[in-house]
Design a binder for these strands. Sequence first.
DNA 1: TTGATCGCGATTGGCTCCAATGTAGCTGAA
DNA 2: TTCAGCTACATTGGAGCCAATCGCGATCAA
Lengths: 219, 219
Amino acid sequence: MTVTTSRNGVASERIASALRDSILRGEHPPGTRILQEDVAADFGASRLPVREAFRILEADGLITLVANTGAWVSRLSLAECEEIYQLRERIEPLLLGYSIQNLTASQLDRLDELAATMQTLRDPEEFLRLDREFHLLSYAGAHTAILGDTVRRLWNTTQHYRRAYTRLLDPDGNRIVHDEHHMLVQALRLRDADDGERILLGHIRRTRLELARHPALFD
Amino acid sequence: MTVTTSRNGVASERIASALRDSILRGEHPPGTRILQEDVAADFGASRLPVREAFRILEADGLITLVANTGAWVSRLSLAECEEIYQLRERIEPLLLGYSIQNLTASQLDRLDELAATMQTLRDPEEFLRLDREFHLLSYAGAHTAILGDTVRRLWNTTQHYRRAYTRLLDPDGNRIVHDEHHMLVQALRLRDADDGERILLGHIRRTRLELARHPALFD
DNA sequence: TTGATCGCGATTGGCTCCAATGTAGCTGAA
DNA sequence: TTCAGCTACATTGGAGCCAATCGCGATCAA
Protein backbone atom coordinates (compact mmCIF):
# COMPACT_ATOMS: atom_id res chain seq x y z
CA MET A 1 0.00 0.00 0.00
CA THR A 2 1.10 3.52 -0.66
CA VAL A 3 1.13 6.07 2.10
CA THR A 4 -2.50 6.97 2.47
CA THR A 5 -3.77 10.47 2.98
CA SER A 6 -3.98 10.81 6.72
CA ARG A 7 -7.37 11.73 8.10
CA ASN A 8 -5.73 12.83 11.32
CA GLY A 9 -4.74 16.35 12.04
CA VAL A 10 -5.90 19.61 10.61
CA ALA A 11 -6.33 20.64 7.01
CA SER A 12 -2.77 21.86 6.51
CA GLU A 13 -1.37 18.49 7.53
CA ARG A 14 -3.84 16.55 5.40
CA ILE A 15 -3.05 18.74 2.42
CA ALA A 16 0.70 18.40 2.98
CA SER A 17 0.36 14.64 3.24
CA ALA A 18 -1.75 14.31 0.10
CA LEU A 19 0.45 16.67 -1.86
CA ARG A 20 3.56 14.81 -0.72
CA ASP A 21 2.08 11.54 -1.99
CA SER A 22 1.14 13.00 -5.33
CA ILE A 23 4.62 14.50 -5.77
CA LEU A 24 6.22 11.16 -4.86
CA ARG A 25 3.91 9.40 -7.33
CA GLY A 26 5.45 11.59 -10.00
CA GLU A 27 2.35 13.64 -10.76
CA HIS A 28 4.41 16.82 -10.47
CA PRO A 29 7.88 16.39 -12.01
CA PRO A 30 10.82 18.42 -10.66
CA GLY A 31 10.64 22.03 -11.79
CA THR A 32 6.85 22.05 -12.04
CA ARG A 33 5.26 25.14 -10.57
CA ILE A 34 2.52 24.62 -7.99
CA LEU A 35 -0.06 27.37 -7.43
CA GLN A 36 -1.66 27.94 -4.03
CA GLU A 37 -5.04 28.55 -5.60
CA ASP A 38 -5.05 25.32 -7.62
CA VAL A 39 -4.22 23.25 -4.56
CA ALA A 40 -6.81 25.10 -2.50
CA ALA A 41 -9.46 24.38 -5.13
CA ASP A 42 -8.46 20.69 -5.29
CA PHE A 43 -9.01 20.32 -1.56
CA GLY A 44 -11.99 22.62 -1.26
CA ALA A 45 -10.12 24.82 1.20
CA SER A 46 -8.88 28.39 1.26
CA ARG A 47 -5.30 29.29 0.47
CA LEU A 48 -4.35 29.62 4.12
CA PRO A 49 -3.93 25.93 4.99
CA VAL A 50 -2.24 25.45 1.62
CA ARG A 51 0.39 28.02 2.59
CA GLU A 52 1.07 26.10 5.80
CA ALA A 53 1.24 22.85 3.84
CA PHE A 54 3.82 24.45 1.52
CA ARG A 55 5.98 25.28 4.55
CA ILE A 56 5.83 21.65 5.67
CA LEU A 57 6.79 20.36 2.24
CA GLU A 58 9.55 22.93 1.93
CA ALA A 59 11.09 21.61 5.14
CA ASP A 60 10.77 18.10 3.69
CA GLY A 61 12.84 19.33 0.77
CA LEU A 62 10.13 18.40 -1.71
CA ILE A 63 9.26 21.91 -2.88
CA THR A 64 11.18 25.16 -3.06
CA LEU A 65 9.52 28.43 -2.06
CA VAL A 66 10.55 31.81 -3.42
CA ALA A 67 9.09 34.84 -1.65
CA ASN A 68 6.46 36.75 -3.61
CA THR A 69 7.01 34.44 -6.55
CA GLY A 70 5.80 30.93 -6.02
CA ALA A 71 6.46 27.28 -5.25
CA TRP A 72 8.24 24.75 -7.44
CA VAL A 73 8.85 21.04 -7.08
CA SER A 74 12.50 20.78 -6.03
CA ARG A 75 15.20 19.79 -8.48
CA LEU A 76 18.47 18.24 -7.40
CA SER A 77 21.90 18.74 -8.84
CA LEU A 78 24.06 15.67 -9.25
CA ALA A 79 26.25 16.95 -6.41
CA GLU A 80 23.26 17.18 -4.06
CA CYS A 81 22.12 13.72 -5.03
CA GLU A 82 25.58 12.35 -4.29
CA GLU A 83 25.47 14.10 -0.91
CA ILE A 84 22.21 12.38 -0.10
CA TYR A 85 23.52 8.97 -1.07
CA GLN A 86 26.68 9.50 0.97
CA LEU A 87 24.51 10.41 3.92
CA ARG A 88 22.40 7.31 3.42
CA GLU A 89 25.55 5.16 3.31
CA ARG A 90 26.41 6.44 6.77
CA ILE A 91 22.97 6.44 8.34
CA GLU A 92 20.95 3.52 7.01
CA PRO A 93 23.24 0.75 8.23
CA LEU A 94 22.83 2.24 11.71
CA LEU A 95 19.06 2.27 11.33
CA LEU A 96 19.05 -1.29 10.05
CA GLY A 97 21.03 -2.33 13.10
CA TYR A 98 18.26 -0.99 15.33
CA SER A 99 15.55 -2.59 13.23
CA ILE A 100 16.98 -6.06 12.74
CA GLN A 101 16.41 -7.12 16.32
CA ASN A 102 12.70 -6.40 16.32
CA LEU A 103 11.27 -7.40 12.95
CA THR A 104 8.34 -9.77 13.38
CA ALA A 105 7.83 -13.01 11.47
CA SER A 106 4.97 -11.54 9.46
CA GLN A 107 7.05 -8.51 8.52
CA LEU A 108 9.85 -10.80 7.33
CA ASP A 109 7.34 -12.84 5.32
CA ARG A 110 6.04 -9.69 3.69
CA LEU A 111 9.59 -8.65 2.81
CA ASP A 112 10.12 -12.04 1.13
CA GLU A 113 6.88 -11.63 -0.76
CA LEU A 114 7.84 -8.12 -1.89
CA ALA A 115 11.26 -9.27 -3.09
CA ALA A 116 9.68 -12.11 -5.08
CA THR A 117 6.94 -9.94 -6.58
CA MET A 118 9.33 -7.22 -7.68
CA GLN A 119 11.39 -9.83 -9.53
CA THR A 120 8.55 -10.55 -11.95
CA LEU A 121 7.13 -7.03 -12.33
CA ARG A 122 7.16 -5.17 -15.62
CA ASP A 123 5.49 -1.90 -14.57
CA PRO A 124 8.00 0.67 -13.26
CA GLU A 125 5.43 2.57 -11.17
CA GLU A 126 4.34 -0.60 -9.42
CA PHE A 127 7.99 -1.48 -8.84
CA LEU A 128 8.57 1.92 -7.21
CA ARG A 129 5.57 1.44 -4.92
CA LEU A 130 6.76 -1.95 -3.75
CA ASP A 131 10.35 -0.76 -3.46
CA ARG A 132 9.16 2.02 -1.18
CA GLU A 133 7.21 -0.44 0.94
CA PHE A 134 10.25 -2.74 1.12
CA HIS A 135 12.42 0.15 2.19
CA LEU A 136 10.06 1.38 4.90
CA LEU A 137 9.26 -2.11 6.15
CA SER A 138 12.89 -3.14 6.55
CA TYR A 139 13.29 -0.28 9.03
CA ALA A 140 9.96 -0.86 10.77
CA GLY A 141 11.64 -2.62 13.68
CA ALA A 142 13.62 0.47 14.62
CA HIS A 143 11.61 2.39 17.19
CA THR A 144 13.39 5.62 16.50
CA ALA A 145 11.85 8.95 15.68
CA ILE A 146 14.69 11.20 14.58
CA LEU A 147 16.76 8.64 12.72
CA GLY A 148 13.75 7.25 10.86
CA ASP A 149 12.48 10.69 9.88
CA THR A 150 15.91 11.72 8.62
CA VAL A 151 16.16 8.67 6.39
CA ARG A 152 12.59 9.09 5.16
CA ARG A 153 13.28 12.69 4.18
CA LEU A 154 16.42 11.76 2.28
CA TRP A 155 14.63 8.91 0.52
CA ASN A 156 11.70 11.10 -0.51
CA THR A 157 13.93 13.82 -1.90
CA THR A 158 15.51 11.43 -4.38
CA GLN A 159 12.29 9.67 -5.42
CA HIS A 160 12.06 11.45 -8.78
CA TYR A 161 15.57 10.41 -9.70
CA ARG A 162 14.97 6.86 -8.52
CA ARG A 163 11.98 6.84 -10.88
CA ALA A 164 13.99 8.13 -13.82
CA TYR A 165 16.79 5.69 -13.05
CA THR A 166 14.46 2.71 -12.68
CA ARG A 167 13.02 3.35 -16.12
CA LEU A 168 16.42 3.06 -17.78
CA LEU A 169 17.80 0.14 -15.75
CA ASP A 170 19.04 -2.61 -18.04
CA PRO A 171 18.09 -6.25 -17.33
CA ASP A 172 21.44 -6.92 -15.71
CA GLY A 173 21.04 -3.99 -13.31
CA ASN A 174 17.63 -5.34 -12.37
CA ARG A 175 19.11 -8.74 -11.62
CA ILE A 176 21.60 -7.19 -9.20
CA VAL A 177 18.83 -5.24 -7.43
CA HIS A 178 16.76 -8.38 -7.01
CA ASP A 179 19.70 -10.37 -5.68
CA GLU A 180 20.34 -7.63 -3.13
CA HIS A 181 16.72 -7.70 -2.00
CA HIS A 182 16.81 -11.45 -1.40
CA MET A 183 20.18 -11.40 0.34
CA LEU A 184 19.07 -8.60 2.62
CA VAL A 185 15.92 -10.43 3.71
CA GLN A 186 17.99 -13.52 4.42
CA ALA A 187 20.35 -11.53 6.63
CA LEU A 188 17.36 -9.99 8.42
CA ARG A 189 15.90 -13.46 9.06
CA LEU A 190 19.19 -14.64 10.57
CA ARG A 191 19.39 -11.43 12.64
CA ASP A 192 22.85 -11.02 11.18
CA ALA A 193 23.34 -7.30 11.62
CA ASP A 194 26.87 -7.21 10.20
CA ASP A 195 25.88 -9.00 7.03
CA GLY A 196 22.72 -6.93 6.64
CA GLU A 197 24.62 -3.68 7.02
CA ARG A 198 27.25 -4.86 4.53
CA ILE A 199 24.62 -5.72 1.89
CA LEU A 200 22.75 -2.48 2.45
CA LEU A 201 25.91 -0.40 2.23
CA GLY A 202 26.87 -2.15 -0.99
CA HIS A 203 23.44 -1.51 -2.48
CA ILE A 204 23.45 2.20 -1.67
CA ARG A 205 27.03 2.66 -2.84
CA ARG A 206 26.37 0.84 -6.12
CA THR A 207 23.28 2.95 -6.77
CA ARG A 208 25.20 6.14 -6.02
CA LEU A 209 27.92 5.21 -8.49
CA GLU A 210 25.40 4.30 -11.18
CA LEU A 211 23.49 7.56 -10.74
CA ALA A 212 26.77 9.41 -11.21
CA ARG A 213 27.03 7.73 -14.63
CA HIS A 214 23.77 9.44 -15.70
CA PRO A 215 24.39 13.17 -15.14
CA ALA A 216 21.74 13.95 -17.76
CA LEU A 217 19.06 13.09 -15.19
CA PHE A 218 20.03 16.14 -13.14
CA ASP A 219 20.27 19.89 -13.49
CA MET B 1 28.74 36.51 16.40
CA THR B 2 25.37 35.05 17.03
CA VAL B 3 23.14 34.18 14.14
CA THR B 4 21.57 37.51 13.33
CA THR B 5 17.93 37.94 12.52
CA SER B 6 17.83 37.78 8.76
CA ARG B 7 16.34 40.81 7.06
CA ASN B 8 15.83 38.76 3.92
CA GLY B 9 12.64 37.02 3.09
CA VAL B 10 9.13 37.64 4.20
CA ALA B 11 7.74 38.09 7.69
CA SER B 12 7.24 34.40 8.43
CA GLU B 13 10.90 33.69 7.74
CA ARG B 14 12.11 36.64 9.76
CA ILE B 15 9.91 35.60 12.65
CA ALA B 16 11.04 31.98 12.42
CA SER B 17 14.67 33.06 12.37
CA ALA B 18 14.32 35.40 15.34
CA LEU B 19 12.32 32.88 17.33
CA ARG B 20 14.86 30.17 16.55
CA ASP B 21 17.65 32.36 17.90
CA SER B 22 15.77 33.19 21.06
CA ILE B 23 15.00 29.52 21.69
CA LEU B 24 18.64 28.61 21.12
CA ARG B 25 19.70 31.37 23.50
CA GLY B 26 17.67 29.58 26.14
CA GLU B 27 14.98 32.21 26.54
CA HIS B 28 12.31 29.51 26.19
CA PRO B 29 13.33 26.33 28.04
CA PRO B 30 12.07 22.94 26.77
CA GLY B 31 8.41 22.41 27.65
CA THR B 32 7.58 26.12 27.62
CA ARG B 33 4.37 26.94 25.83
CA ILE B 34 4.52 29.57 23.09
CA LEU B 35 1.35 31.46 22.15
CA GLN B 36 0.75 32.70 18.62
CA GLU B 37 -0.67 35.97 19.90
CA ASP B 38 2.34 36.77 22.11
CA VAL B 39 4.77 36.21 19.26
CA ALA B 40 2.59 38.23 16.89
CA ALA B 41 2.56 41.12 19.36
CA ASP B 42 6.35 40.93 19.81
CA PHE B 43 6.90 41.32 16.08
CA GLY B 44 4.06 43.74 15.42
CA ALA B 45 2.47 41.30 12.99
CA SER B 46 -0.74 39.35 12.84
CA ARG B 47 -0.98 35.70 13.82
CA LEU B 48 -0.82 34.49 10.24
CA PRO B 49 2.93 34.81 9.61
CA VAL B 50 3.48 33.44 13.11
CA ARG B 51 1.58 30.30 12.19
CA GLU B 52 3.84 29.82 9.18
CA ALA B 53 6.90 30.46 11.34
CA PHE B 54 5.69 27.76 13.75
CA ARG B 55 5.55 25.29 10.85
CA ILE B 56 9.14 26.12 9.95
CA LEU B 57 10.35 25.67 13.52
CA GLU B 58 8.36 22.46 13.87
CA ALA B 59 10.22 21.05 10.88
CA ASP B 60 13.46 22.17 12.52
CA GLY B 61 12.48 20.07 15.51
CA LEU B 62 12.64 23.07 17.83
CA ILE B 63 8.94 23.25 18.70
CA THR B 64 6.16 20.70 18.82
CA LEU B 65 2.70 21.58 17.48
CA VAL B 66 -0.51 19.94 18.67
CA ALA B 67 -3.60 20.63 16.59
CA ASN B 68 -6.14 22.94 18.18
CA THR B 69 -4.04 23.05 21.31
CA GLY B 70 -0.79 24.92 20.96
CA ALA B 71 2.95 24.99 20.49
CA TRP B 72 5.61 23.93 22.97
CA VAL B 73 9.38 24.09 22.91
CA SER B 74 10.46 20.52 22.16
CA ARG B 75 11.79 18.24 24.87
CA LEU B 76 14.08 15.32 24.16
CA SER B 77 14.18 11.96 25.85
CA LEU B 78 17.60 10.53 26.64
CA ALA B 79 17.02 7.95 23.89
CA GLU B 80 16.35 10.66 21.30
CA CYS B 81 19.42 12.58 22.39
CA GLU B 82 21.54 9.43 22.01
CA GLU B 83 20.07 8.96 18.54
CA ILE B 84 21.13 12.46 17.59
CA TYR B 85 24.64 11.96 18.87
CA GLN B 86 24.96 8.63 17.05
CA LEU B 87 23.84 10.38 13.88
CA ARG B 88 26.39 13.11 14.43
CA GLU B 89 29.12 10.51 14.90
CA ARG B 90 28.33 9.19 11.45
CA ILE B 91 27.73 12.46 9.62
CA GLU B 92 30.05 15.12 10.98
CA PRO B 93 33.34 13.40 10.11
CA LEU B 94 32.06 13.27 6.53
CA LEU B 95 31.22 16.96 6.61
CA LEU B 96 34.60 17.81 8.11
CA GLY B 97 36.27 15.90 5.28
CA TYR B 98 34.54 18.18 2.78
CA SER B 99 35.38 21.30 4.76
CA ILE B 100 39.03 20.66 5.56
CA GLN B 101 40.23 21.24 2.02
CA ASN B 102 38.74 24.70 1.68
CA LEU B 103 39.17 26.51 4.99
CA THR B 104 40.91 29.84 4.50
CA ALA B 105 43.79 31.15 6.56
CA SER B 106 41.61 33.76 8.23
CA GLN B 107 39.02 31.14 9.14
CA LEU B 108 41.74 28.98 10.70
CA ASP B 109 43.06 31.98 12.63
CA ARG B 110 39.59 32.68 13.96
CA LEU B 111 39.24 29.06 15.05
CA ASP B 112 42.53 29.36 16.96
CA GLU B 113 41.30 32.54 18.56
CA LEU B 114 38.00 30.95 19.56
CA ALA B 115 39.73 27.93 21.08
CA ALA B 116 42.00 30.19 23.12
CA THR B 117 39.21 32.50 24.26
CA MET B 118 36.98 29.64 25.37
CA GLN B 119 39.79 28.34 27.53
CA THR B 120 39.72 31.40 29.79
CA LEU B 121 35.97 32.05 29.81
CA ARG B 122 33.90 31.85 32.98
CA ASP B 123 30.46 32.71 31.59
CA PRO B 124 28.56 29.62 30.31
CA GLU B 125 26.35 31.59 27.92
CA GLU B 126 29.35 33.24 26.29
CA PHE B 127 31.00 29.82 26.05
CA LEU B 128 27.94 28.41 24.26
CA ARG B 129 27.97 31.31 21.78
CA LEU B 130 31.62 30.79 20.93
CA ASP B 131 31.21 27.02 20.83
CA ARG B 132 28.45 27.44 18.28
CA GLU B 133 30.61 29.73 16.19
CA PHE B 134 33.49 27.26 16.40
CA HIS B 135 31.20 24.44 15.32
CA LEU B 136 29.73 26.33 12.35
CA LEU B 137 33.06 27.77 11.27
CA SER B 138 34.85 24.43 11.23
CA TYR B 139 32.35 23.28 8.60
CA ALA B 140 32.35 26.54 6.66
CA GLY B 141 34.64 25.08 4.00
CA ALA B 142 32.11 22.43 3.03
CA HIS B 143 30.03 23.81 0.19
CA THR B 144 27.18 21.44 0.82
CA ALA B 145 23.54 22.28 1.27
CA ILE B 146 21.87 19.11 2.46
CA LEU B 147 24.65 17.75 4.63
CA GLY B 148 25.23 21.08 6.32
CA ASP B 149 21.55 21.66 6.99
CA THR B 150 21.14 18.19 8.45
CA VAL B 151 24.00 18.73 10.89
CA ARG B 152 22.76 22.19 11.80
CA ARG B 153 19.31 20.82 12.60
CA LEU B 154 20.72 18.08 14.79
CA TRP B 155 22.99 20.52 16.58
CA ASN B 156 20.16 23.00 17.24
CA THR B 157 17.87 20.34 18.62
CA THR B 158 20.33 19.47 21.38
CA GLN B 159 21.30 23.03 22.26
CA HIS B 160 19.25 23.10 25.48
CA TYR B 161 20.91 19.96 26.74
CA ARG B 162 24.35 21.21 25.74
CA ARG B 163 23.57 24.28 27.86
CA ALA B 164 22.50 22.23 30.86
CA TYR B 165 25.51 19.98 30.46
CA THR B 166 27.96 22.86 30.12
CA ARG B 167 26.77 24.34 33.39
CA LEU B 168 27.64 21.21 35.32
CA LEU B 169 30.94 20.34 33.60
CA ASP B 170 33.69 19.86 36.15
CA PRO B 171 37.09 21.53 35.59
CA ASP B 172 38.56 18.29 34.27
CA GLY B 173 35.82 17.92 31.67
CA ASN B 174 36.50 21.46 30.56
CA ARG B 175 40.18 20.71 30.16
CA ILE B 176 39.36 17.80 27.83
CA VAL B 177 37.04 19.97 25.74
CA HIS B 178 39.71 22.63 25.37
CA ASP B 179 42.36 20.10 24.40
CA GLU B 180 40.03 18.74 21.74
CA HIS B 181 39.45 22.22 20.33
CA HIS B 182 43.14 22.88 19.98
CA MET B 183 43.92 19.46 18.51
CA LEU B 184 41.14 19.83 15.96
CA VAL B 185 42.36 23.21 14.77
CA GLN B 186 45.86 21.80 14.40
CA ALA B 187 44.57 18.94 12.26
CA LEU B 188 42.61 21.42 10.16
CA ARG B 189 45.73 23.54 9.62
CA LEU B 190 47.67 20.49 8.45
CA ARG B 191 44.75 19.48 6.19
CA ASP B 192 44.98 16.10 7.90
CA ALA B 193 41.46 14.80 7.27
CA ASP B 194 42.00 11.43 8.93
CA ASP B 195 43.28 12.98 12.13
CA GLY B 196 40.59 15.65 12.14
CA GLU B 197 37.85 13.08 11.72
CA ARG B 198 39.34 10.94 14.46
CA ILE B 199 39.45 13.84 16.93
CA LEU B 200 35.92 14.95 16.03
CA LEU B 201 34.55 11.43 16.36
CA GLY B 202 36.19 11.05 19.75
CA HIS B 203 34.74 14.36 20.92
CA ILE B 204 31.19 13.52 19.89
CA ARG B 205 31.40 10.00 21.30
CA ARG B 206 32.78 11.23 24.63
CA THR B 207 30.02 13.84 24.91
CA ARG B 208 27.37 11.24 24.11
CA LEU B 209 28.66 8.94 26.84
CA GLU B 210 28.81 11.77 29.36
CA LEU B 211 25.27 12.92 28.58
CA ALA B 212 24.10 9.35 29.19
CA ARG B 213 25.53 9.67 32.70
CA HIS B 214 23.10 12.54 33.42
CA PRO B 215 19.63 11.11 32.69
CA ALA B 216 18.11 13.69 35.01
CA LEU B 217 18.60 16.34 32.32
CA PHE B 218 15.98 14.61 30.16
CA ASP B 219 12.32 13.60 30.30
C1' DT C 1 15.70 43.98 -35.81
C1' DT C 2 17.03 44.37 -31.12
C1' DG C 3 17.25 46.30 -26.77
C1' DA C 4 15.40 48.59 -22.80
C1' DT C 5 11.47 50.52 -20.27
C1' DC C 6 6.91 50.97 -18.71
C1' DG C 7 2.54 49.17 -17.27
C1' DC C 8 -0.80 45.66 -16.50
C1' DG C 9 -2.28 41.20 -14.97
C1' DA C 10 -1.50 37.21 -12.22
C1' DT C 11 -0.01 35.54 -7.88
C1' DT C 12 1.53 35.72 -3.37
C1' DG C 13 1.69 38.11 1.44
C1' DG C 14 -0.93 39.90 5.31
C1' DC C 15 -4.91 41.50 8.18
C1' DT C 16 -9.48 41.12 10.29
C1' DC C 17 -13.29 38.66 11.58
C1' DC C 18 -15.70 34.37 12.64
C1' DA C 19 -15.99 29.33 13.72
C1' DA C 20 -14.28 25.24 16.03
C1' DT C 21 -11.87 23.03 19.55
C1' DG C 22 -9.74 22.06 23.84
C1' DT C 23 -9.06 23.24 28.72
C1' DA C 24 -10.02 24.82 33.18
C1' DG C 25 -13.06 25.87 36.66
C1' DC C 26 -17.46 25.39 38.80
C1' DT C 27 -21.47 22.88 40.34
C1' DG C 28 -23.71 19.06 41.84
C1' DA C 29 -24.53 14.44 43.60
C1' DA C 30 -22.76 10.03 45.49
C1' DT D 1 -14.47 14.58 50.05
C1' DT D 2 -14.21 13.21 45.45
C1' DC D 3 -15.43 12.53 40.94
C1' DA D 4 -18.37 13.24 36.95
C1' DG D 5 -20.54 16.41 33.96
C1' DC D 6 -21.40 20.91 32.27
C1' DT D 7 -20.43 25.63 31.12
C1' DA D 8 -17.57 29.46 29.86
C1' DC D 9 -13.34 31.22 28.33
C1' DA D 10 -8.95 31.17 26.10
C1' DT D 11 -6.70 29.80 22.03
C1' DT D 12 -6.16 27.90 17.66
C1' DG D 13 -8.05 26.93 12.76
C1' DG D 14 -10.13 28.87 8.53
C1' DA D 15 -12.32 32.14 5.00
C1' DG D 16 -12.55 36.33 2.49
C1' DC D 17 -10.76 40.67 1.40
C1' DC D 18 -7.18 43.99 0.22
C1' DA D 19 -2.28 45.30 -0.46
C1' DA D 20 2.37 44.33 -2.20
C1' DT D 21 5.27 42.25 -5.46
C1' DC D 22 6.91 39.93 -9.50
C1' DG D 23 6.91 38.51 -14.29
C1' DC D 24 5.57 39.10 -18.84
C1' DG D 25 4.21 41.48 -22.79
C1' DA D 26 3.62 45.66 -25.37
C1' DT D 27 5.59 49.86 -26.84
C1' DC D 28 9.10 52.81 -28.34
C1' DA D 29 13.65 54.25 -29.58
C1' DA D 30 18.27 53.26 -31.50
